[in-house]
């Protein structure tokens, strides 16, 4: 199936897209020519990092894929309003983090309805934010390692989980994470440190086993 560059009336895309173009150049091509090939280059450029982040935050491959698709779709619709005053990358990840958070909220509300639990304290709520409902197919696809990681991630409050994922999965600089999350660099560092310590202790057995 032809995914991009489909010929449509008045929108024929004949020029090949140079994949070395900057984000901003690609954005311009989408804005000015509605160039789907350019948009595809942009999507491909970010999809892996974005998936890693979304998966780490929402804890399911299926949900992460949906969040990603939704995010890229909305981005396409609103791209013509983007003036390039902020970095596309920071902008994109900020939106993605917010989407993931919304996804988590939906899940935990659902989980609460099903479990018929009483209202929780803030702390309980924070630690339960990561509870997700799994479909049978996902359950089958879960590896042992994946389960351990998901369990460990669930134990982290949302803020810690976010900065931890941005750092460990996407390798972002502290400064960039601070800009994206609107935290101070010091707070980002502290959150990462606490998250690493917790993750390390929860995953200790696995890390020990894989040492040799």
């Amino acid at each position: 199936m032809e995914l991009v560059g489909v010929e449509e009336e008045g929108l024929a895309v004949a020029v090949a897209v140079d994949s070395t173009l900057s984000d901003l150049d690609l954005v311009r091509q989408v804005q000015e020519q509605d160039d789907l090939k350019a948009y595809e280059v942009l999507v491909k450029r970010y999809e892996k990092e974005a998936f890693g982040l979304a998966y780490t935050l929402v804890g399911s491959r299926e949900d992460a894929k949906d969040v990603l698709q939704e995010c890229f779709f909305n981005l396409y619709l609103s791209l013509k309003n983007f003036r390039g005053e902020s970095s596309f990358r920071t902008y994109f990840f900020r939106v993605l983090v917010n989407r993931c958070r919304d996804e988590q909220r939906k899940k935990s509300v659902w989980g609460r309805i099903i479990l018929r639990t009483v209202p929780m304290t803030e702390e309980e709520e924070e630690s339960l934010e990561g509870v997700t409902l799994k479909t049978p197919s996902e359950e089958l696809a879960q590896t042992e390692l994946g389960q351990k990681i998901e369990e460990a991630m669930k134990g982290l409050p949302w803020r810690q989980r976010t900065v931890f994922a941005l750092k460990m999965i996407d390798g972002m600089k502290i400064r960039e994470i601070a800009e994206l999350t609107e935290l101070t660099p010091g707070a980002v560092k502290a959150n990462i440190f606490h998250a690493i310590s917790k993750m390390r202790s929860v995953l200790q057995d696995y890390l020990e086993l894989s040492k040799g």
Binding site: K48, I149, I169
Partner: peptide, 8 residues
């Protein structure tokens, strides 16, 4: 370990 798990 995390990167391995978060790849698709």
């Amino acid at each position: 370990v995390l990167l391995q798990d978060a790849s698709a």
